[in-house]
Amino acid sequence: MDWTDIDSLERCNSTDALWAQALQIFATMGFDYAIYLTVEGDRSHPHIHTNLPQIYEQLPSHRDPFLDHCCNSYEPQFTGTEFLSDHPYLEAEEMAFIRGASAKTGFRAGIAIPVRLQGSDRFGGFNLGTARSRDSFIAHVTGKTDSLRFLCLIIHRRMEELRQTASGPAANPSKPDAEGAGFNRPLIAPPPAALTRLSPREREVLYLFSQGLTSKECAAVCKISPHTVSEYANSIYRKLNVRNRVEAIGVLAAAERTPDRNTQL
């Protein structure tokens, strides 16, 4: 995945076009199967895109165990029949659904990427799968989870923008924060408990920097000017007591490794 992929997603003007582009990118990354499912906080208004529609012939999408067990944190989880032994809490009906989906489609091993935009009650995520064995799949995704999460957040935000444009205001639209001047998009910042000394906008800019985006690319993703990105960057360095982008990214990496997400930095 590179900037060309991100730009191609941002240029899509319909949810179907966006999903088709996302599937192409997932395929180049070695994922044969993809499910994107989000719902409101009360499980209403499910929004789904998948190249495996047959798995929901017997079970409504909003009852997919993926929502209960893979979307209650920000951490990716392994999915599929190859990893059933890692999830002993699954009920018999849930295991039967997962095994049935595998039998129908060949989805054996996957990774769940939960997504949620700051200020939005909608939750859900992506379940990206293959026909690989357990060990082969672990080797395949090792070192890729951060880039996968970033890609999925970019797709999710664009999907939500296009969905709301097509259907009018969402039941629970993203809520702007007090210092949101200059931003007109929902935030894809890291979990709110990380780097609490930074504003939500500053966390997003730092997160984009950590994914390798330049100031110009960051400005394009956030739909602000490069000058505004520089102002946020300077504020980040001052608050974190660092001298440059590399040091700031190091602080973010340390915060994300901290077991206690409530640590004040």
Rank of each mutant, 00 (worst) to 15 (best):
T4S: 14
D5A: 15
I6R: 10
I6Q: 04
S8C: 10
L9A: 09
E10M: 14
R11L: 11
S14D: 13
A17R: 08
W19I: 10
W19M: 13
W19L: 05
A20L: 13
A22C: 09
L23V: 15
I25Y: 06
T28S: 14
T28P: 03
G30F: 04
F31W: 12
D32F: 04
L37K: 12
E40P: 03
G41Q: 13
H45Q: 14
H45T: 09
T50N: 08
N51R: 12
N51A: 11
L52A: 02
I55A: 03
P60V: 07
H62P: 00
H62D: 14
H62K: 15
D64G: 02
P65M: 06
F66P: 11
D68I: 09
H69G: 06
N72M: 11
S73C: 08
E75W: 12
F78P: 02
T81I: 15
H87G: 02
E91C: 08
A92S: 05
A92L: 10
E94T: 07
R99C: 12
G100V: 02
S102G: 15
F107I: 06
A109Y: 03
I111L: 05
A112M: 06
P114I: 06
R116L: 01
L117W: 00
L117V: 01
Q118T: 07
F123H: 15
G125H: 08
F126Y: 13
F126C: 05
G129C: 12
T130R: 03
R132E: 15
D135P: 04
S136Y: 02
F137D: 03
F137N: 02
H140G: 02
H140D: 01
H140C: 01
V141D: 02
G143A: 09
K144W: 09
T145Q: 11
R149V: 10
L151D: 01
M159Y: 15
E160D: 06
A166N: 08
S167G: 11
G168T: 10
G180E: 14
G182W: 12
P186H: 01
P190A: 07
A194D: 00
L195A: 06
L195T: 07
L195S: 07
T196F: 04
R197Y: 12
R201F: 00
R203T: 01
L206I: 02
Y207W: 10
F209N: 00
T214V: 03
K216P: 01
E217Q: 15
K223L: 05
I224L: 08
S230Y: 05
A233G: 06
N234S: 13
I236L: 04
Y237P: 02
L240G: 06
R245A: 09
G250F: 06
V251R: 13
A253D: 12
E256A: 00
R257I: 00
D260V: 14
N262T: 13
